[in-house]
Design a protein around this nucleic acid. Structure first.
Length: 889
RNA sequence: GGGCGGGUAGCUCAGGUGGCUAGAGCGACAGCCUUACAAGCUGUAGGCCACAGGUUCAAGUCCUGUCCCGCCUACCA
């Protein structure tokens, strides 16, 4: 038998054990074919080489709660796990590692580099998985996938070729965001505009055959080396005479036309725009409209190329800027430099300032798919929670631009594109072609790899076996829910939707729950680089996994930023300890009072013999089950855990167990037996949130004489979700009457500092026979659970004993004679405070009831309530006034 | 420039479709080692629900405006 349960809950002692138990018994496994209803979630695959950060912890805890809850409800619940190769980020980390080793990726070569990446993946790849397991995640690990595994490769090629054949994937020369550090094109989404303090450089451009000098403002003087025009607004009166003339580009002394374009803002700067079609998106558009030359002045790593002129070749962008400005100044072309704050695009992965450049890239025309996705959402095939995200989604999708999908990198899915070495024909195919239509048999495969989001966009169906028509695909697609942070709505969610519609002809998931990002106490997003982040594993070691999960779920609102103060984790730890001790108490007493075989603990309907507190706790439990279930249905995680917390702590522990103690003291163990039943159900309710401590307690209960009410389940993980018993409003109302009286007596004792050991006499006066009857029956049973009681007197009329404290609750009055302790002053103060409050409430209620419109228009029920309230208040006020008068005498 | 979210106790936050006296956790104060838990128990204090109007019998909740804070988004060089 037990009794050696430690007084303090020790999470470290049990967590590993239970996780292994769950794994060994395959409780997390979902069947491909099942009679049960399906429920499926795919994990947002974490970076293979990453480690668990606070954002993962929140995201995965919420998913685990949903999966564990549905599993208990009897769903065939699949949580599909896996990892992402994560393209550029991963490469960058590896590159840093290589530099430390004194080498670099060029030295290794493509094959050597890829091999290193795979080796690294093999050795560090399971790290993040083991961390997810420490967090308690109940993924179906047998199914684990990787976005770069062999099956994925087939799927990616299949999708690519299909989209290519539909004309949705094409190759084009276009202006893209170029990252000079990563040496690749990136998409708009990967560019983060950041405000920086820069300058406006005002530069003079002479006009050919004239003394006029144009004054042009720019934030990037070095790009003038690529200027091929100067533009003004067609209706700008100031410059009409210059239109069509040639300007002379300083330093290079190149002639460039002065053109007109609607794009130019007359109000901004000098109303005159230098046009650099090769390195500015807007200028590129202007250039196309006017057929201007596109001059590329940068090398891929953003140094100046030969087009920049001899003097500048080889300089970096910033060196060139400095040199050029100096040269302009000497040649007297520089008018002034003024400080100017503006947004500059940075590559989100390496924080390098991107260089818009023209290059030959592969694009995906996402517009038609975006339209389909919008329609699917409008038809309700997918729902966003919170709803406001729908607006953001529409806005993005309606303005979507072609997606550059090729990356000049090595770690990723290589484009399934081959070029004929003879006729340059472009062939998209699953494998290298054998023969070109020109007869040639030699091909080279495109060097580029796909944007990492291309493959993760296929995640919901590739993980289920696509392009094969597998049973899993049939069973689990579309997924039930997707849970992720709002910050990757466009990156990932939108893409999955489009790919799902393109490849499966069906949305990938029914609901998308977008939670906030974890922030510190100042509302700043937690991140390692800011140094303000909570380390999940350290937290788990210090507080225990369940405590951590408690805090995460409790914070899991849909606010854009969710603070996670340490105190919340502390609360989780205390809560775990609280229920641990409730179990300890229950078990210790069950040893002395074993449950007889005839006893039913499964919360059936109330029977006439039931003790009031048993009927009450049953009703409260039932309400808790209902509220918790409802909250989970609607993704209100905070409400769900708050409900269970409040029930277990403040109803079960604070009241019910105290009642049970009282019963035990009188040799009546039944309330205790029921306590074990309530606790068992409470553990089941809490299991999705705090799986470890609940499993431990649940087993302790079963190994120590308690017969479970959850059938033959071998683990709480697969035990049924608690079922509703009937709520009993009358029982709750009776108990409420008793509790209010007890609260008031406690309050008197507390305020008047009555020592714990002192027994009190309680006199209660009530004009209501029903109330008197209830209190006569029950107060004597329950009051002694909380204090020493000398006697209880209940009557229609009670005369106030001398030197007594009193409390008035509506028409009911409680007197407690306290000859030894009472101080008239403090008693008067107490009553006076209450009296003032009552008078205030009376005024308000009176005012409402005096309004004829209220009587006429408010629902009868509301009017009646208000009248009842006023009546009670008036009665209370009268009694308080009388007592105050008596005290003053 | 456009859009979204927020402003409720000292702090962090709850407050489905308006309706009894606006809640919780943490913190503060006072008192308790009451035989499950001092990581506990009991009691107390603390709110012009940002501000100003409006709708309504009734507003923390709905509408309009204002002021702050945060975020997303946009081509102002």
């Amino acid at each position: 038998m037990m009794t050696n349960l430690p007084k303090i809950y020790e999470p470290q002692a049990i967590e590993g054990k239970w996780y292994q138990f769950w794994l060994q018994n395959k409780y997390f496994h979902a069947a491909d074919i099942s009679d049960k209803p399906q429920f499926s979630i795919v994990i947002p695959p974490p970076n293979i080489t990453g480690s668990l950060h606070i954002g993962h912890a929140l995201d995965n805890t919420l998913q685990d709660c949903l999966i564990r809850w549905r599993r208990m409800q009897g769903y065939n619940a699949l949580w599909m796990p896996g990892t992402d190769h994560a393209g550029i980020v991963t490469e960058l980390v590896m590159e840093r590692q290589l530099v430390e080793e004194g080498t670099n990726r060029t030295a290794l070569g493509r094959e050597g580099f890829e091999q290193r990446m795979w080796e690294w993946k093999e050795e560090s790849g399971s790290y993040i998985i083991s961390q997810l397991q420490q967090l308690g995640c109940s993924c179906d690990w047998e199914r684990e996938r990787f976005t770069l595994d062999a099956e994925f490769s087939v799927a990616v090629r299949t999708a690519f070729v299909q989209l290519y054949n539909q004309g949705l994937i094409y190759r084009d020369t276009y202006m893209v965001n170029w990252c000079p550090h990563c040496n690749t094109a990136v998409s708009n989404l990967e560019v983060e505009p950041k405000e920086i303090d820069g300058h406006f450089y005002h530069i003079r451009y002479p006009v050919k055959g004239s003394d006029v000098q144009l004054e042009i403002a720019t934030t990037r003087p070095e790009t003038m080396l690529g200027d091929t025009a100067v533009a003004v607004h067609p209706e700008d009166e100031r410059y009409q005479h210059l239109i069509g003339k040639m300007a002379i580009l300083p330093i290079q002394n190149r002639e460039i036309p002065i053109i007109t374009d609607e794009y130019v803002d007359r109000e901004f700067g000098t109303g005159m725009l230098k046009v650099t079609p090769g390195h500015d998106t807007n200028d590129y558009e202007i250039g196309k409209r006017h057929n201007l030359e596109q001059r590329n002045i940068f090398t891929p790593d953003a140094h100046m190329n030969e087009n920049a002129g001899e003097k500048y070749v080889g300089l970096s962008r910033w060196e060139c800027r400095e040199q050029l400005v100096a040269d302009l100044k000497i040649a007297n072309y520089l008018v002034k430099i003024v400080p100017h704050r503006h947004a500059v695009g940075h590559h989100d992965r390496c924080d390098t300032i991107v260089e818009p450049s023209i290059s030959l890239q592969w694009f995906m025309n996402v517009r038609p798919l975006a339209q389909q996705a919008i329609e699917a959402v409008k038809k309700g095939e997918v729902k966003f929670i919170p709803e406001r995200e729908t607006t953001r989604f529409y806005h993005w999708m309606e303005n979507i631009e072609p997606w550059p999908i090729s990356r000049q990198r090595w770690w990723g899915h290589r484009l399934p594109i081959w070029y004929c070495t003879v006729c340059n024909a472009v062939i998209a195919a699953m494998e290298a072609p054998h023969e070109c239509k020109c007869g040639a048999t030699q091909f080279t495969q495109d060097e580029d790899v796909l944007d990492t989001w291309f493959s993760s966009g296929l995640w919901p169906f590739v993980t289920m076996g696509w392009p094969e028509e597998t049973a899993a695909l049939k069973t689990f697609y579309p997924n039930s829910v997707l849970v992720t942070g709002w910050d990757i709505l466009f990156f990932w969610v939108a893409r999955m939707l489009m790919f799902g519609l393109a490849c499966m002809n069906e949305v990938p998931f029914r609901k998308v729950y977008l939670h906030g990002l974890v922030a510190d106490e100042k509302g700043q997003k937690m991140s390692k680089s800011k140094g303000n982040s909570i380390e999940p594993l350290e937290t788990i070691t210090t507080y225990g996994t369940d405590a951590f999960r408690f805090a995460l779920v409790n914070a899991g609102t849909t606010n854009p930023y969710v603070p996670l103060p340490e105190s919340q984790i502390e609360t989780g730890k205390r809560f775990a300890n609280k229920i641990w001790n409730a179990a300890r108490f229950t078990l210790m007493n069950l040893e002395k009072h074993p449950i007889p075989a005839s006893e039913r603990l499964d919360m059936p309907q109330r029977t006439a013999q039931d003790l009031l507190e048993i009927a009450w706790i049953r009703s409260r439990l039932s309400r808790t089950i209902k509220t918790t279930t409802d909250a989970l249905e609607n993704f209100r995680f905070h409400e769900a855990i708050q409900t269970v917390y409040a029930f277990l702590w403040h109803e079960f522990c604070d009241w019910y167990l105290e009642f049970a103690k009282q019963r035990l003291a009188h040799g009546e163990p039944r309330a205790l037996w029921v306590a074990s039943g309530v606790l068992e159900q409470g553990m089941r309710l809490l299991q999705p949130f705090m799986p470890f401590v609940t499993e431990e307690i649940w087993h302790q209960l079963s190994h120590n004489g308690m017969r479970h009410t959850s059938g033959d389940s071998p683990s709480i993980t697969v035990a049924p979700w608690p079922e509703l018993a009937a709520e009993d409003l009358q029982v709750e109302e009776i108990m409420e009457t008793v509790m209010v009286v007890i609260d008031n007596i406690r309050s008197i004792r507390g305020e008047l500092n009555v020592p714990m050991g002192a027994a009190v006499a309680v006199l209660i006066q009530s004009p209501d026979a029903t109330v008197r009857e209830r209190l006569r029956t029950y107060l004597g049973q329950y009051l002694p659970a909380f204090m020493r009681v000398e006697s209880i007197t209940i009557a229609e009329n009670v005369s106030k004993p001398p030197a007594s404290a009193e409390a008035v609750i509506g028409k009911l009055v409680i007197y407690i004679p306290l000859e030894d302790v009472i101080e008239l002053e403090s008693e008067r103060a107490r009553l006076n405070k209450r009296h003032q409050q009552v008078v205030k409430d009376i005024t308000a209620a009176q005012k409402t009831l005096d309004n004829p419109n209220f009587i006429n228009r408010a629902p009868a029920k509301v009017v009646e309530q208000k009248r009842g309230q006023l009546e009670r208040l008036l009665s209370e006020q009268a009694k308080l006034a009388r007592s105050l008068a008596a005290l003053t005498e």
